[in-house]
Design a protein around this nucleic acid. Structure first.
Lengths: 338, 338
DNA sequence: CGCTGGCACTCGCGCGCGCAGAGTGCCAGG
DNA sequence: CCTGGCACTCTGCGCGCGCGAGTGCCAGCG
């Protein structure tokens, strides 16, 4: 077990390194943080911290930098979440309030997160599976061709073309539309399958094929998790770490382009609470030198999607976590209102 | 006026420089291109080309590199568009054919363009203004609250909430829906305003307020040019020019994040034909060391949106132009089919 | 027992130097 | 007008050196 002071030393190292982006030495530490002990003592503590694997030196006779394990301890035990100031909160709210539709909400959220954290922001569109159905619309495009439009409570719209096995009259269409909506409107996606199970039985034999087709298309749309979209922004912030440059930025950009990777990344987040994945804790290799701070957000109590930021392991964790949490909260509010 | 051989020298310089990414000297030129003259002669030609501003040397006693003006001449006079090979065409078609909806088409197009050209791809969503209306749907969400859904021939869906001045019955709603569609379905956006002009008159006095509100919302949606969205991809390709690195990649990433900038950029493209903007021809400063190759695409004969790539001025113009043109053509086909 | 000041040691980084090589401009001759 | 030759100019690179930051260790002190 590490003594209290050693933890403070670790905290100081993390803070200084995040601030200066340079390995921090014992002397600088005692000067900038009043630890009440001499550099020599700090050196001993540092040696101990290094033995434990919390810090490392890039080369012999250089200062120390935190390891992933060191950041982990810092995040878990040594630092809280720095709450946003009142003006910041207000700015967030103002910025998000101007959004006109779901796309706009997501776009603004990305910009906001990127600006606040000065890192790469990732925002997942509100997921279908957790949402409820606001309305289902059926349009006749051709005698045997329908368009199915699904509108969710988060304002998301999904559309699918349906080729009918047989022509489908306007009357039947209106009937199906009415029955469908009376059953599923306001219901959670998860409940829809059993709510429409017996629907074909209410129709004439010749229409049942089409009804079944429409229903299966609807159900497909509901479960199409992989269709989940996301938006990223602030990639220019990657260029801020000029140091260890091209080696690190390349794989990160590549990873960010792989939506699948990102979705998996966010998917690992637990529903509530914030997740911080530091360096090698990220399974994707391209992200081994980055940290990911993510959190779920939602319109009600429950999370419908995730958002987060990707940045260097050397990041301001308290500030970033504060920003991510605050943004998630306000986005949730906005979604609930609309 | 430049002699034929000097133009050939310029062409050779551009080609070599694009290939090697290094300033090209007179000796290397004569070795790799059978110009039939000696290095000394080429040197004279180079001096002339430099006087005219087509090439420059980064430092005294280095090889020459093309200037923006040199690339311009190359693109205009010295190089054609390199057509895609048969297998490439087929690959493009296969890749795009798998798309399930508009988002998917755009996403695939971006990926495809980025892969083919190994550069940053930008694809604008099919614009509303040029499109035609496929269907307008009205849904009653609450007694005095409607949702207006607009479906375009390119498969794009726009939705708007409408707060009615007065409650609006189901019968009126159905009536309005039917009348609206009979008038505007299949029509071009530009024609819609005059087609619905007198629509309120067909309704009872108490409903006219609502009808007018719905109509004005519809018209707003139609003209909302600024709502135009786009998708970008392949930013990881920016890291390929390791040379003059962080100086150039930063502003480019920033420019790419400014959707407004990009939209303006693409907007400058003339409707038909390909546009190549080289280096300083781009008004946006961040893009002064890049070239933009863009072209309109559309489902019919007419362009409904633009797409293109952003890359270093030192790019393979014929190949890039070929890829951009081919992709645009096939995307147009896909949109026409769906 | 833990903290401190002192001291010798290590090693990365920046700087200056010199050399090799590529490329140029110019000139005289064909 | 083209060509071969020649002198010149730079850049990039490798090398060696010295500085300085930072360390580890040790002996002494409270």
């Amino acid at each position: 077990m590490l003594s209290e002071r050693r933890l403070q030393v670790l905290r100081a190292i993390v803070q200084d390194y995040v601030g200066t982006e340079e390995p921090v030495g014992s002397k600088a530490l005692t000067e900038r943080h009043s630890l009440g002990v001499s550099p020599a003592t700090v050196r001993n503590d540092m040696a101990a911290l290094e033995d434990e694997g919390y810090i490392a030196q890039p080369h012999t006779s250089a200062g120390r930098i935190p390891t992933d394990k060191g950041y982990r301890l810092f995040v878990d035990k040594l630092a809280g979440v720095k709450p946003m100031t009142q003006p910041e909160r207000r700015a967030i709210q103002n910025f998000l309030d101007g959004a006109v539709d779901l796309d706009d909400v997501v776009a603004r959220t990305v910009r906001l997160l990127a600006q606040l954290t000065r890192q790469v922001a990732v925002v997942q569109y509100p997921s279908l599976t957790r949402s409820t159905v606001r309305h289902v619309e059926l349009l006749s495009l051709a005698p045997a061709r329908l368009m199915l439009v699904l509108i969710t409570d988060t304002g998301r719209v999904e559309q699918r073309l349906v080729d009918c096995p047989a022509p489908f009259g306007e009357a039947s269409l209106a009937d199906l539309r009415a029955r469908l909506n009376s059953r599923v409107a306001g219901r959670r996606f998860a409940d829809v399958p059993r709510l429409v199970e017996d629907l074909p039985e209410a129709f004439d034999v010749e229409d049942r094929g089409t009804v079944s087709t429409v229903l299966s298309t609807l159900l497909e749309t509901l479960v199409e998790e992989n269709e989940e979209r996301l938006m990223i922004g602030g990639t220019a912030n990657l260029t801020r770490f000029n140091h260890d440059f091209p080696l690190t930025i390349r794989p990160v950009l590549e990873a960010l382009e792989e939506q699948v990777v990102l979705l998996k990344l966010l998917g690992e987040v637990k529903d509530s609470g914030m997740t911080v994945r530091i360096g090698h804790e990220n399974v994707h290799e391209g992200l081994n030198s980055t940290s990911v701070v993510s959190v779920g957000y939602g319109s009600g109590g429950e999370a419908v999607a995730k958002l987060g930021v990707v940045g260097p392991t050397r990041m301001d964790y308290p500030g970033t976590m504060g920003a991510v949490r605050a943004v998630a909260r306000y986005v949730g509010q906005i979604l609930a209102e609309s």
